[in-house]
């Protein structure tokens, strides 16, 4: 399996001026596997995703990211859902054009969108339930729709590895359920998923493993091994944690 491994981190640290640093992470993702990054605010959850993407520099350790083809950028087939607040929502662009961005790297600098590109965009809009809004200006969509639009962009990449920064934020219950189904589908098609979330219940539904962080790695492994009272107390220092059989409540993180 190691040869097919999508992501492998060996005692990796990421750091960059303004962003919270994250250190000593050892974890991996295989095809069809989903990993949730859990930790308090500012614990380096987003840093982890940006580090994998190469946006935040790796300062120690060794990271291997699955490369689709020789000569292509390593992130050519990584889909990334950024947090909404990184986006210029005043931008004059339609939803469909945003989703098409997910195809840019496949198209290269000059080729016009082909039938396969348009199909991938249509599919991504369908899956995220946004087909009817395809021609709307992106900035006029609701917060939840914008987030699903950006997810559609990540899906249009037809990624092998999907990185999602707080994908459940700004989603109402039906859309949360729909996203969970979408992610399960992707997993069964061999896509690896790495997501950050505050919601342990959602993590439990979608993910196989948990990476618990608090500026540094607290624990990594299968859900039930990682989600122990001791680990959670270590990660959420100063925050009251209750572990009630399968339900874990973390007060102050009601996203």
């Amino acid at each position: 399996m190691t040869s097919q491994r999508l992501l492998n981190l060996d005692d990796v640290s990421f750091a960059y001026e303004a962003d919270a640093a994250l250190s000593h992470v050892t974890m991996s993702i295989d095809p069809g596997q989903a990993v949730a990054i859990i930790g308090p605010n500012g614990s380096g959850k987003s840093t982890m995703l940006k580090g994998v993407l190469g946006v935040i520099p790796l300062v120690a350790g060794e990271m291997t990211v699955f490369r689709p083809k020789k000569g292509r950028g390593q992130s050519g087939r990584i889909g990334y859902l950024p947090q909404d607040d990184d986006i210029d929502s005043e931008f004059p662009i339609t939803l469909k054009q945003v989703v098409m961005m997910g195809r840019y790297r496949r198209m290269g600098w000059f080729r016009f969108p082909g039938a396969d590109d348009r199909q991938a965009v249509a599919d991504a809009l369908e899956v995220t339930g946004l087909t009817s809004r395809a021609n709307a200006r992106f900035g006029t969509l609701s917060g939840g729709q914008q987030q699903r639009g950006l997810l559609a962009r990540a899906l249009a990449t037809k990624p092998s590895l999907l990185l999602l920064d707080e994908p459940f934020n700004a989603l109402d219950q039906p859309n949360r359920d729909a996203l969970i189904e979408t992610l399960k589908d992707l997993k069964s098609n061999g896509v690896g998923i790495l997501l950050t979330t505050h919601d342990l219940e959602l993590a439990r539904e979608v993910c196989d493993s948990i990476l618990l962080v608090n500026g540094t790695q607290v624990a990594f492994g299968p859900l039930d091994e990682v989600l122990t009272l001791e680990n959670l107390q270590q990660a959420f220092e100063g925050v009251q944690v209750e572990v009630d059989e399968h339900k874990v409540v973390i007060p102050g993180h009601s996203h």
Binding site: G73, S75, G76, Y80, D86, I87, D88, R105
Partner: peptide, 21 residues
């Protein structure tokens, strides 16, 4: 014209563009 797609992408969200390579 030669960098049009990259310019559009990084104007829209620079992090996403960087992530896309």
């Amino acid at each position: 014209l030669a960098t049009l797609r990259g310019q559009i992408f990084s104007s829209f969200d620079v992090r996403g563009a960087q992530a896309a390579g």
